[in-house]
Amino acid sequence: MTAISAKPKVQAEPAKRVQFDNALLPWLFLLPQLAVIVVFFYWPSVQAVQSSFFIEDPFGFGSTFVGMANYADALASREYRRIASFTAVFTVLVTFLSLAIGLLLAVKADAVIRGASAYKTLLISVYAIAPPVAGLIGMMFFDMHIGPFVQMAAWFGWNMQVGLNYFDTAFAMVFVSVWKQIPYNFIFFLSGLQAVPVSVREAAFIDCKNGWRRFRTVTLPLLMPTAFFLLIINITYALFDTFGIIDVMVKDKPANNPITLVYKVYNDGFRGNDLGGSSAQSVILMVVVFALTIVQFRFLEKRIHYG
Protein backbone atom coordinates (compact mmCIF):
# COMPACT_ATOMS: atom_id res chain seq x y z
CA MET A 1 0.00 0.00 0.00
CA THR A 2 2.94 2.32 0.50
CA ALA A 3 3.23 2.30 -3.26
CA ILE A 4 0.26 4.56 -3.63
CA SER A 5 0.99 7.06 -0.92
CA ALA A 6 3.66 9.52 -1.91
CA LYS A 7 6.69 9.86 0.33
CA PRO A 8 7.46 13.53 0.77
CA LYS A 9 11.14 14.23 0.36
CA VAL A 10 11.15 17.42 2.29
CA GLN A 11 9.70 17.31 5.75
CA ALA A 12 6.35 19.06 5.47
CA GLU A 13 5.05 21.25 8.19
CA PRO A 14 3.66 19.12 10.95
CA ALA A 15 -0.01 18.55 10.21
CA LYS A 16 -2.55 19.39 12.84
CA ARG A 17 -2.50 16.44 15.20
CA VAL A 18 -5.79 15.14 16.34
CA GLN A 19 -5.69 14.48 20.01
CA PHE A 20 -7.77 11.78 21.61
CA ASP A 21 -8.52 12.31 25.27
CA ASN A 22 -9.03 8.64 25.82
CA ALA A 23 -6.37 6.16 24.71
CA LEU A 24 -9.02 3.57 23.93
CA LEU A 25 -11.04 5.79 21.63
CA PRO A 26 -8.83 5.38 18.50
CA TRP A 27 -8.97 1.63 18.96
CA LEU A 28 -12.71 1.83 19.15
CA PHE A 29 -12.79 3.62 15.80
CA LEU A 30 -10.46 1.04 14.34
CA LEU A 31 -12.49 -1.85 15.65
CA PRO A 32 -14.97 -2.28 12.77
CA GLN A 33 -12.15 -2.35 10.21
CA LEU A 34 -10.10 -4.74 12.31
CA ALA A 35 -13.07 -6.98 12.87
CA VAL A 36 -13.67 -7.21 9.13
CA ILE A 37 -10.02 -8.12 8.51
CA VAL A 38 -9.95 -10.71 11.26
CA VAL A 39 -13.25 -12.34 10.34
CA PHE A 40 -12.78 -12.36 6.58
CA PHE A 41 -9.04 -12.71 6.25
CA TYR A 42 -7.09 -13.94 9.26
CA TRP A 43 -9.62 -16.41 10.55
CA PRO A 44 -10.11 -18.24 7.22
CA SER A 45 -6.33 -18.19 6.66
CA VAL A 46 -5.71 -19.82 10.02
CA GLN A 47 -8.41 -22.38 9.25
CA ALA A 48 -6.83 -23.14 5.87
CA VAL A 49 -3.42 -23.64 7.45
CA GLN A 50 -4.95 -25.85 10.11
CA SER A 51 -6.94 -28.10 7.77
CA SER A 52 -3.98 -28.43 5.40
CA PHE A 53 -2.40 -30.82 7.91
CA PHE A 54 -5.42 -33.14 7.95
CA ILE A 55 -7.24 -35.49 5.66
CA GLU A 56 -10.85 -34.91 6.43
CA ASP A 57 -14.19 -36.48 5.66
CA PRO A 58 -16.20 -33.77 3.88
CA PHE A 59 -19.08 -33.87 6.37
CA GLY A 60 -16.69 -33.28 9.24
CA PHE A 61 -17.19 -36.61 11.03
CA GLY A 62 -13.57 -37.54 11.24
CA SER A 63 -10.17 -36.20 10.34
CA THR A 64 -6.75 -37.80 10.33
CA PHE A 65 -3.60 -35.83 11.03
CA VAL A 66 -1.20 -36.38 8.16
CA GLY A 67 1.48 -33.76 8.80
CA MET A 68 2.98 -32.39 5.61
CA ALA A 69 1.55 -35.18 3.44
CA ASN A 70 -0.97 -32.91 1.69
CA TYR A 71 1.85 -30.53 0.72
CA ALA A 72 4.08 -33.37 -0.42
CA ASP A 73 1.24 -34.88 -2.48
CA ALA A 74 0.53 -31.58 -4.21
CA LEU A 75 4.15 -30.71 -4.96
CA ALA A 76 5.03 -34.21 -6.11
CA SER A 77 2.11 -34.41 -8.52
CA ARG A 78 3.04 -33.96 -12.17
CA GLU A 79 -0.37 -32.44 -12.80
CA TYR A 80 0.15 -29.83 -10.09
CA ARG A 81 3.52 -28.80 -11.49
CA ARG A 82 2.06 -28.58 -14.97
CA ILE A 83 -0.69 -26.27 -13.71
CA ALA A 84 1.85 -24.22 -11.74
CA SER A 85 3.99 -23.61 -14.80
CA PHE A 86 0.96 -22.66 -16.86
CA THR A 87 -0.09 -20.25 -14.11
CA ALA A 88 3.34 -18.58 -14.24
CA VAL A 89 3.27 -18.20 -18.03
CA PHE A 90 -0.35 -17.05 -17.97
CA THR A 91 0.36 -14.44 -15.28
CA VAL A 92 3.38 -13.02 -17.10
CA LEU A 93 1.54 -12.86 -20.43
CA VAL A 94 -1.66 -11.34 -19.07
CA THR A 95 0.22 -8.79 -16.93
CA PHE A 96 2.61 -7.75 -19.67
CA LEU A 97 0.05 -7.55 -22.47
CA SER A 98 -2.64 -5.74 -20.53
CA LEU A 99 -0.12 -3.22 -19.17
CA ALA A 100 1.51 -2.66 -22.54
CA ILE A 101 -1.73 -2.28 -24.48
CA GLY A 102 -3.29 -0.17 -21.72
CA LEU A 103 -0.28 2.16 -21.78
CA LEU A 104 -0.27 2.42 -25.55
CA LEU A 105 -3.95 3.30 -25.67
CA ALA A 106 -3.55 5.81 -22.84
CA VAL A 107 -0.65 7.59 -24.57
CA LYS A 108 -2.62 7.75 -27.82
CA ALA A 109 -5.83 8.88 -26.11
CA ASP A 110 -3.88 11.52 -24.19
CA ALA A 111 -2.73 13.00 -27.50
CA VAL A 112 -6.24 13.21 -28.91
CA ILE A 113 -7.80 16.64 -28.58
CA ARG A 114 -11.07 16.40 -30.47
CA GLY A 115 -13.67 13.97 -29.16
CA ALA A 116 -11.32 12.90 -26.37
CA SER A 117 -14.10 11.99 -23.95
CA ALA A 118 -15.87 9.80 -26.51
CA TYR A 119 -12.69 7.76 -27.01
CA LYS A 120 -12.11 7.48 -23.32
CA THR A 121 -15.66 6.40 -22.57
CA LEU A 122 -15.50 3.75 -25.25
CA LEU A 123 -12.25 2.36 -23.88
CA ILE A 124 -13.32 2.47 -20.25
CA SER A 125 -16.78 0.97 -20.73
CA VAL A 126 -15.40 -2.57 -21.08
CA TYR A 127 -14.34 -2.36 -17.46
CA ALA A 128 -17.98 -2.45 -16.38
CA ILE A 129 -18.32 -6.04 -17.63
CA ALA A 130 -18.23 -8.67 -14.89
CA PRO A 131 -15.59 -11.43 -15.37
CA PRO A 132 -18.07 -14.30 -15.87
CA VAL A 133 -19.91 -12.22 -18.45
CA ALA A 134 -16.59 -11.49 -20.14
CA GLY A 135 -15.92 -15.22 -20.09
CA LEU A 136 -19.33 -15.90 -21.59
CA ILE A 137 -18.76 -13.38 -24.38
CA GLY A 138 -15.34 -14.90 -24.94
CA MET A 139 -16.78 -18.39 -24.99
CA MET A 140 -19.26 -17.40 -27.68
CA PHE A 141 -16.53 -15.72 -29.70
CA PHE A 142 -14.41 -18.84 -29.50
CA ASP A 143 -17.17 -21.47 -29.77
CA MET A 144 -15.98 -24.42 -31.86
CA HIS A 145 -19.10 -24.53 -34.01
CA ILE A 146 -20.46 -20.98 -34.21
CA GLY A 147 -17.75 -18.65 -32.87
CA PRO A 148 -16.94 -15.73 -35.18
CA PHE A 149 -13.33 -15.65 -34.00
CA VAL A 150 -12.94 -19.32 -34.89
CA GLN A 151 -14.33 -18.65 -38.36
CA MET A 152 -11.89 -15.75 -38.75
CA ALA A 153 -9.01 -17.99 -37.68
CA ALA A 154 -10.14 -20.55 -40.26
CA TRP A 155 -9.42 -18.02 -43.05
CA PHE A 156 -5.79 -18.21 -42.05
CA GLY A 157 -5.87 -21.96 -41.98
CA TRP A 158 -5.97 -22.12 -38.17
CA ASN A 159 -8.41 -24.84 -37.11
CA MET A 160 -9.10 -23.42 -33.67
CA GLN A 161 -10.58 -25.85 -31.12
CA VAL A 162 -11.02 -24.12 -27.79
CA GLY A 163 -11.78 -26.75 -25.15
CA LEU A 164 -9.98 -29.51 -27.01
CA ASN A 165 -6.61 -28.12 -28.00
CA TYR A 166 -4.45 -26.99 -25.07
CA PHE A 167 -2.77 -24.15 -26.95
CA ASP A 168 -6.01 -22.83 -28.47
CA THR A 169 -7.74 -22.75 -25.09
CA ALA A 170 -4.73 -21.00 -23.54
CA PHE A 171 -4.78 -18.44 -26.35
CA ALA A 172 -8.49 -17.74 -25.85
CA MET A 173 -8.06 -17.41 -22.07
CA VAL A 174 -5.18 -14.95 -22.36
CA PHE A 175 -7.06 -13.02 -25.03
CA VAL A 176 -10.22 -12.58 -22.96
CA SER A 177 -8.34 -11.91 -19.71
CA VAL A 178 -6.22 -9.20 -21.33
CA TRP A 179 -9.22 -7.65 -23.06
CA LYS A 180 -11.02 -7.47 -19.72
CA GLN A 181 -8.11 -5.79 -17.90
CA ILE A 182 -7.01 -3.20 -20.48
CA PRO A 183 -9.61 -0.55 -19.51
CA TYR A 184 -8.53 -0.64 -15.88
CA ASN A 185 -4.90 -0.03 -16.81
CA PHE A 186 -6.00 2.56 -19.33
CA ILE A 187 -7.81 4.63 -16.70
CA PHE A 188 -4.81 4.69 -14.38
CA PHE A 189 -2.24 5.37 -17.06
CA LEU A 190 -4.35 8.15 -18.52
CA SER A 191 -4.74 9.89 -15.19
CA GLY A 192 -1.02 9.35 -14.61
CA LEU A 193 -0.23 10.99 -17.92
CA GLN A 194 -2.51 13.89 -17.20
CA ALA A 195 -0.68 14.47 -13.94
CA VAL A 196 2.56 15.17 -15.79
CA PRO A 197 2.92 18.97 -15.48
CA VAL A 198 2.59 20.98 -18.68
CA SER A 199 5.73 22.90 -17.83
CA VAL A 200 7.76 19.70 -17.73
CA ARG A 201 6.33 18.57 -21.06
CA GLU A 202 7.07 21.92 -22.69
CA ALA A 203 10.60 21.99 -21.33
CA ALA A 204 11.17 18.48 -22.66
CA PHE A 205 9.72 19.50 -26.00
CA ILE A 206 12.27 22.29 -26.32
CA ASP A 207 15.15 19.99 -25.39
CA CYS A 208 14.24 17.05 -27.58
CA LYS A 209 12.31 16.65 -30.81
CA ASN A 210 12.22 12.87 -30.82
CA GLY A 211 8.81 11.86 -29.40
CA TRP A 212 9.83 8.32 -28.40
CA ARG A 213 12.91 9.56 -26.59
CA ARG A 214 10.89 12.22 -24.80
CA PHE A 215 8.44 9.55 -23.70
CA ARG A 216 11.19 7.21 -22.56
CA THR A 217 13.27 9.72 -20.62
CA VAL A 218 10.68 12.11 -19.22
CA THR A 219 7.13 10.76 -19.30
CA LEU A 220 7.84 7.13 -18.41
CA PRO A 221 9.88 7.84 -15.26
CA LEU A 222 7.10 10.14 -14.08
CA LEU A 223 4.58 7.34 -14.72
CA MET A 224 6.54 4.75 -12.78
CA PRO A 225 4.62 5.02 -9.48
CA THR A 226 1.40 4.34 -11.39
CA ALA A 227 3.03 1.52 -13.34
CA PHE A 228 4.33 -0.14 -10.16
CA PHE A 229 0.94 0.01 -8.55
CA LEU A 230 -0.64 -1.45 -11.70
CA LEU A 231 1.98 -4.19 -11.88
CA ILE A 232 0.96 -5.50 -8.47
CA ILE A 233 -2.74 -5.16 -9.23
CA ASN A 234 -2.36 -6.93 -12.58
CA ILE A 235 -0.41 -9.83 -11.15
CA THR A 236 -3.12 -10.31 -8.54
CA TYR A 237 -5.74 -10.04 -11.26
CA ALA A 238 -4.06 -12.69 -13.42
CA LEU A 239 -3.57 -15.03 -10.47
CA PHE A 240 -6.96 -14.71 -8.79
CA ASP A 241 -9.57 -12.61 -10.57
CA THR A 242 -9.41 -14.50 -13.85
CA PHE A 243 -11.18 -17.38 -12.11
CA GLY A 244 -14.60 -16.44 -13.52
CA ILE A 245 -13.27 -16.25 -17.05
CA ILE A 246 -11.52 -19.61 -16.78
CA ASP A 247 -14.53 -21.30 -15.23
CA VAL A 248 -16.80 -20.20 -18.01
CA MET A 249 -14.31 -20.97 -20.77
CA VAL A 250 -13.61 -24.55 -19.70
CA LYS A 251 -17.36 -25.08 -19.14
CA ASP A 252 -16.57 -26.53 -15.73
CA LYS A 253 -14.89 -29.56 -17.28
CA PRO A 254 -11.20 -28.67 -17.40
CA ALA A 255 -10.13 -32.05 -18.92
CA ASN A 256 -6.62 -31.39 -20.28
CA ASN A 257 -7.25 -27.69 -20.79
CA PRO A 258 -5.00 -25.18 -19.08
CA ILE A 259 -6.22 -23.97 -15.70
CA THR A 260 -4.59 -21.82 -13.02
CA LEU A 261 -3.69 -22.81 -9.48
CA VAL A 262 -6.68 -20.99 -8.03
CA TYR A 263 -9.00 -22.97 -10.24
CA LYS A 264 -7.35 -26.16 -9.06
CA VAL A 265 -7.91 -25.18 -5.44
CA TYR A 266 -11.59 -24.68 -6.22
CA ASN A 267 -11.81 -27.88 -8.22
CA ASP A 268 -10.31 -30.07 -5.51
CA GLY A 269 -12.03 -28.33 -2.62
CA PHE A 270 -15.51 -27.61 -3.85
CA ARG A 271 -16.04 -30.15 -6.58
CA GLY A 272 -13.86 -32.91 -5.19
CA ASN A 273 -14.69 -32.27 -1.52
CA ASP A 274 -11.03 -32.83 -0.63
CA LEU A 275 -10.63 -30.12 2.00
CA GLY A 276 -7.16 -31.08 3.23
CA GLY A 277 -5.54 -31.19 -0.20
CA SER A 278 -7.27 -28.05 -1.32
CA SER A 279 -6.25 -26.16 1.83
CA ALA A 280 -2.62 -27.18 1.38
CA GLN A 281 -2.71 -25.84 -2.17
CA SER A 282 -4.20 -22.55 -1.08
CA VAL A 283 -1.53 -22.17 1.60
CA ILE A 284 1.16 -22.76 -1.04
CA LEU A 285 -0.46 -20.07 -3.17
CA MET A 286 -0.62 -17.72 -0.21
CA VAL A 287 3.10 -18.17 0.43
CA VAL A 288 3.94 -17.56 -3.23
CA VAL A 289 1.94 -14.34 -3.39
CA PHE A 290 3.43 -13.17 -0.10
CA ALA A 291 6.96 -13.80 -1.36
CA LEU A 292 6.22 -12.12 -4.66
CA THR A 293 4.91 -9.00 -2.96
CA ILE A 294 7.95 -8.76 -0.70
CA VAL A 295 10.29 -9.08 -3.67
CA GLN A 296 8.43 -6.39 -5.51
CA PHE A 297 8.53 -3.94 -2.65
CA ARG A 298 12.10 -4.70 -1.65
CA PHE A 299 13.77 -4.60 -5.03
CA LEU A 300 11.51 -2.90 -7.53
CA GLU A 301 10.17 -0.11 -5.47
CA LYS A 302 13.63 1.23 -4.67
CA ARG A 303 14.09 2.13 -8.30
CA ILE A 304 10.94 4.15 -8.42
CA HIS A 305 10.97 7.86 -7.99
CA TYR A 306 7.89 9.29 -6.37
CA GLY A 307 7.65 12.89 -7.62
Binding site: N165, K253, A255, N256, N257, N267, D268, R271, G272, D274
Partner: peptide
Amino acid sequence: GFYPQIRSIMEREYNRIFAGE
Protein backbone atom coordinates in the same frame (compact mmCIF):
# COMPACT_ATOMS: atom_id res chain seq x y z
CA GLY B 1 -15.15 -42.07 -3.35
CA PHE B 2 -13.79 -38.79 -4.74
CA TYR B 3 -15.38 -39.95 -7.97
CA PRO B 4 -15.95 -36.44 -9.40
CA GLN B 5 -12.17 -35.97 -9.29
CA ILE B 6 -11.58 -39.38 -10.87
CA ARG B 7 -13.89 -38.31 -13.69
CA SER B 8 -11.77 -35.16 -14.15
CA ILE B 9 -8.66 -37.32 -14.54
CA MET B 10 -10.45 -39.43 -17.15
CA GLU B 11 -11.57 -36.33 -19.03
CA ARG B 12 -8.01 -35.04 -19.09
CA GLU B 13 -6.56 -38.30 -20.36
CA TYR B 14 -9.31 -38.83 -22.96
CA ASN B 15 -8.54 -35.41 -24.42
CA ARG B 16 -4.90 -36.44 -24.58
CA ILE B 17 -5.76 -39.71 -26.31
CA PHE B 18 -7.68 -37.95 -29.05
CA ALA B 19 -5.04 -35.25 -29.39
CA GLY B 20 -2.55 -38.07 -30.04
CA GLU B 21 -0.45 -37.11 -26.98
